[in-house]
Structures are given as structure tokens and as C-alpha cells.
């Protein structure tokens, strides 16, 4: 099993969610985060004083999937989150040793 983590632009969340649903994903965890990357931030001016806002709002998605589903899910996120502009985000995949569904206690493949 793998944990897929993706950082995407907030307004793309609905598209990504729909793409993941269509790809058969059963569960996603989403959190609102801020990112600092090549996109850079922006400046806001209040009463003539400039504030550099380095961190840009982003959404983080976490999805645990079976090994054989990794490519499909990554492709779905990639296609749905892409705008072609700097700041579209990143996807990374890490290994998961164990997974448990709290309600039933099921482990492994059954708990995905």
C-alpha cells in the first residue's frame, strides 16, 4: 500500500475530487495548507505599507491506495489539477506498512 500526497491549487479541489471519484477512489483527506515554492507569493499594501505574503494558499490531499492503483490515481490528480501555470503543485508517493479501518478493525487491502 502507498500513501499518495498531493499539493494542489485550492480552486482545483472540486475537479480533483471528481476525477478521483471517477477513478474509483473511496476516500480522501483534505487539509488547507500554505505553500512556498516557485510560484512565489504576492504583496499586499495596507495604508501604504507593503506586506510580502510568501505563502500561497494550497490544498493538501492524502489518499491511501493499493500498490496497483498508484499510477491511475497519480494520473487522475495530475490531469485534474493541471493549469499549465507555475504553482500547480506536487504529488509524492510513500510506502505504508500497515493500514487499519477503525470501525471494523480490518487491516491491509480490506481497509483501503
Amino acid at each position: 500500500m502507498k500513501l499518495i500526497t498531493a499539493i494542489v491549487k485550492p480552486f482545483k479541489l472540486d475537479d480533483v475530487k471528481d476525477a478521483l471519484k471517477a477513478a474509483g477512489v473511496q476516500g480522501i483527506t483534505v487539509s488547507e495548507v500554505r505553500g512556498f515554492g516557485r510560484q512565489g507569493g504576492h504583496t499586499e499594501t495596507y495604508r501604504g505599507a507593503e506586506y510580502k505574503i510568501d505563502f500561497v494558499p494550497k490544498v493538501r490531499l492524502e489518499i491511501v491506495v493499493d500498490d496497483q492503483d498508484v499510477d491511475g490515481v497519480v494520473a487522475a490528480v495530475k490531469a485534474a489539477a493541471s493549469t499549465g501555470k507555475i504553482g500547480d503543485g506536487k504529488i509524492w508517493v510513500t510506502g505504508v506498512d500497515r493500514i487499519i479501518r477503525i470501525r471494523t478493525g480490518e487491516e491491509g487491502h480490506d481497509a483501503v
Binding site: 488547507e32 499586499e44 505574503i53
Partner: peptide, 10 residues
């Protein structure tokens, strides 16, 4: 307007 209402998450 170069401003944001809620800093951080949007």
C-alpha cells in the same frame, strides 16, 4: 484590490 480577507487558508 491587492488585499485578502482571511490570511492563510482560503
Amino acid at each position: 484590490h491587492g488585499e485578502t480577507a482571511y490570511h492563510g487558508a482560503q
